[in-house]
């Protein structure tokens, strides 16, 4: 049911873990639905995502989309990164089963939340 790319990211997820020096953290989903994603970003003075890590509780699609977004946006300016959509993440993984498009495809939302958290931190 999953593409080879999804299975690769599930089996060998990129950028798993936490960032002690993160300056933006975003969490989406909830335990009731069975998916929780947490993204940690470190944005440098040039407004570029210098480092990114994730932690995810969820199905294969949830873990693969989390892993994929870290690959897509690492090294990207936040102004560009925030335009990445959940759909694009799914496309980069050669698609997801239809039932997973809504419940487990939240990685871009987690990134937006992390960028928002970073911006709030800059204002303070």
């Amino acid at each position: 049911m999953y593409s080879e790319k999804v299975m690769d990211h599930f089996q060998n997820p990129r950028n798993v873990g936490t960032l002690p020096d993160a300056n933006g953290v975003g969490e989406v989903g909830n335990i009731r639905c069975g998916d929780v994603m947490k993204l940690y970003i470190k944005v440098n003075e040039n407004q570029v995502i210098e480092d990114i890590k994730f932690q995810t509780f969820g199905c294969g699609a949830a873990i693969a989309t989390s892993s994929m977004i870290t690959e897509i946006v690492k090294g990207m300016p936040i102004s560009e990164a925030e335009k990445v959509s959940n759909r694009q993440v799914a496309e980069e993984l050669d698609g997801l089963p239809p039932v997973k498009m809504h419940c487990s495809n939240l990685a871009a939302d987690a990134l937006k939340a992390a960028i928002e958290d970073y911006r709030q931190g800059q204002k303070a």
Partner: peptide, 14 residues
Amino acid sequence: ERVEGESLILSLDM
């Protein structure tokens, strides 16, 4: 606890 069933199934399947 702390892990989701489908991920467990996929991992065990592998």
